[in-house]
Amino acid sequence: MCSWIVETAAMSGVAKGPDGWIDINQANVYFDHPFKAPMDHALIIDFVRDPERPNGRVAIEISAESARRLVESINRALTTGEAVHVLGEATHA
């Protein structure tokens, strides 16, 4: 399929691209045709500074299996982190 269906998540953080670090305020997540990856469909995440302007984006296009592994890894890392830190919207210590 080729659609405009997007899941969004508010973000607090930064991401690094070829031009350095940018603030990240939203993640747009969708499963559709990738622009670059040689796949028919991919799980795509656009980490964007401003969703209304193309002025800062770090993008990934990965296979569905990769995406599921990523989700599991994120959850495991968060579980490990919770064992030693108090996790919140902005944890700096």
């Binding site: 939203q26 969703p51 209304e52 002025n55 984006r57």
Partner: peptide
């Protein structure tokens, strides 16, 4: 912008 970046904006909108 690059076609992929502006496509991302269009999709998000």
């Amino acid at each position: 912008g690059e076609p992929d970046d502006v496509a991302a904006v269009s999709r998000a909108a």
